[in-house]
């Protein structure tokens, strides 16, 4: 049986193809302006990668903020449930998921079966999310991919008082004028974001194992900042960005099996 999960997020669209027990294709592309086009492209590419045809898909679950705009979808499920499911498959011991994506961040509590028992999401503004890091990387004149590596060289993270993108940008101006090192500034940015996540997630709690997902989880400086803030070790799956799409594919598989019965 072949199924797919499509996660159309604010910044990127992801697709995972699942054939029986194994992942046979996964792709990440920028979402761009047109959500439904992104969904089409990402699934087409994933199918090409695995050398399969669209007709072979027996069930498709869509997720992410564009979940209702996916023409191919048989069912739309929120990213909260999908992330929990994907993480549970990769790391069965996981009890907490921290997901930081392009426009939102969330903390999800899960049980041993991957069921969600509690969750919290950031408010409508994108403070302290992937978009925030993107803007900061532009302000500091370095590539987003280098932020983690550079921040790990910071010895004394600067204190950044606001994760509001607009206010933080003006804070950058002041810090640079004061001659602070880029390393310390970026470490400070990560620290401020980690603090925000810790505050937001306190009602859910951070039970072990804590797994970090979403595009921002690829940033090792952010991982370290979270570990320092929460005083515990954090696991990052190999491809943290596709956890939502993977969960969607797993749910698609369960749904397809249920319908066969």
């Amino acid at each position: 049986m072949m199924v797919a999960g499509i996660d159309v997020g604010a910044a990127t669209a992801k697709a995972v193809i699942l054939s029986d027990e194994s992942v046979t294709g996964s792709v990440v592309i920028p979402t761009g302006y047109d959500v439904s086009t992104a969904a089409e492209s990402v699934i087409r590419e994933a199918l090409e990668n695995s050398g399969r045809k669209i007709q072979e898909l027996s069930f498709v679950v869509s997720t992410g903020y564009g979940r209702n705009a996916v023409a191919l979808s048989n069912k739309a499920i929120t990213e909260i449930i999908c992330h929990a499911c994907g993480v549970n498959w990769m790391v069965p011991e996981a009890r907490t998921v921290i997901d930081i994506g392009g426009q939102d961040s969330k903390v999800i509590g899960i049980d041993d079966k991957g069921n969600v028992d509690n969750f919290v999401m950031n408010d409508k503004c994108a403070a302290g999310t992937g978009r925030f890091l993107e803007v900061m990387s532009k302000v500091l004149g370095i590539g987003i991919d280098n932020m983690g590596r550079i921040s790990l060289q910071g010895t004394e993270p600067c204190s950044i008082s606001s994760t509001c993108t607009v206010f933080a940008e003006s804070e950058m101006v002041i810090l640079r004028a004061r001659g602070e090192s880029r390393e310390n500034i970026i470490a400070g940015i990560h620290k401020a974001m980690a603090h925000r996540v810790a505050l937001m997630g306190r009602s859910v709690g951070f039970r072990k194992e804590v797994v970090f997902t979403g595009g921002v989880a690829k940033n090792e400086g952010m991982k370290k900042a979270l570990e320092d803030e929460l005083s515990l070790e954090i696991l990052v799956p190999e491809e943290p960005q596709i956890m939502g799409a993977l969960g969607a594919a797993l749910l698609a598989r369960a749904e397809a099996a249920r319908r066969l019965d």
Binding site: I77, T78, I80, F119, M121, D123
Partner: peptide, 12 residues
């Protein structure tokens, strides 16, 4: 934004 939270809660 409310839709995602409410839907996730109902799924939960």
């Amino acid at each position: 934004q409310l839709r995602t939270r409410i839907q996730a809660f109902l799924e939960m």
